[in-house]
Computed example of a mutant assay.
Amino acid sequence: MDKVIKHSKINSFADDTRISKRISTMDDCLLLQQDLEYVMEWSKDNNMMLHEEKFELLSYRTPASKATAEALPFMGAVNSYTTSSGTTLDRSTIVRDLGVNMSEDLSWSPHINMMVDQARQIASWVLGVFKERSKPLMVQLFKSLVRSRVEYCCPLWNPAKIADIQAIESIQRHFTRRISGLKNLNYWDRLKELKLLSLQRRRERYMIIHVWKILHGICPNDINMVFKENPRLGNKVVLPPITSRATSLAKTFYDNSFAVKAGKLWNTLPRDVNTQKTLECFKIKLGSYMESFPDNPPTPGYTASNHNSLIDCCSQRGGPQMAR
Rank of each mutant, 00 (worst) to 15 (best):
V78D: 03
V78N: 03
N79Y: 13
S80E: 02
Y81D: 00
Y81P: 06
T82P: 05
T82G: 01
G86C: 07
G86K: 13
T88S: 14
L89V: 03
L89W: 12
D90R: 14
D90K: 15
S92C: 15
S92I: 03
T93Y: 05
V95D: 02
V95R: 01
R96F: 06
G99L: 12
V100H: 08
V100P: 09
V100M: 02
M102D: 01
D105L: 13
S107V: 04
W108Q: 03
W108V: 01
S109N: 08
P110V: 08
H111S: 13
V116G: 05
D117N: 12
D117K: 15
A119N: 11
R120W: 11
A123K: 06
A123T: 05
A123M: 11
S124R: 10
W125H: 12
W125C: 15
V126W: 02
L127H: 05
L127A: 09
G128E: 00
V129E: 03
F130W: 10
E132D: 15
R133Q: 11
K135G: 00
L137P: 11
M138C: 15
Q140K: 15
L141V: 07
K143G: 07
S144A: 15
S144I: 08
L145Q: 13
L145W: 11
V146G: 04
V146P: 04
R147Y: 01
V150A: 10
E151Y: 04
Y152G: 04
C153G: 12
C154D: 14
L156W: 04
W157E: 00
W157K: 07
P159N: 06
P159D: 03
I162G: 04
A163I: 08
D164W: 02
Q166F: 11
E169W: 02
S170G: 06
S170A: 11
S170C: 13
Q172K: 09
Q172L: 08
Q172A: 07
Q172D: 01
Q172R: 08
R173N: 00
T176Y: 03
T176Q: 04
T176M: 02
I179E: 02
G181I: 00
N184K: 09
Y187G: 03
W188Q: 09
D189R: 10
R190W: 08
R190N: 01
K192R: 15
L194N: 10
L194P: 06
L194W: 00
K195S: 12
S198R: 06
S198C: 09
Q200A: 09
Q200W: 07
Q200M: 11
R201Q: 10
R203V: 10
E204F: 00
E204Q: 12
R205P: 02
Y206H: 10
M207L: 07
M207F: 02
M207K: 03
I208D: 03
I208G: 03
H210S: 15
H210Q: 15
V211M: 14
K213F: 08
K213H: 14
I214E: 05
H216Y: 14
G217W: 13
G217R: 05
I218H: 11
C219R: 04
P220R: 09
P220L: 01
N221R: 08
D222N: 13
D222L: 11
D222K: 04
N224T: 10
M225E: 02
M225W: 07
V226W: 00
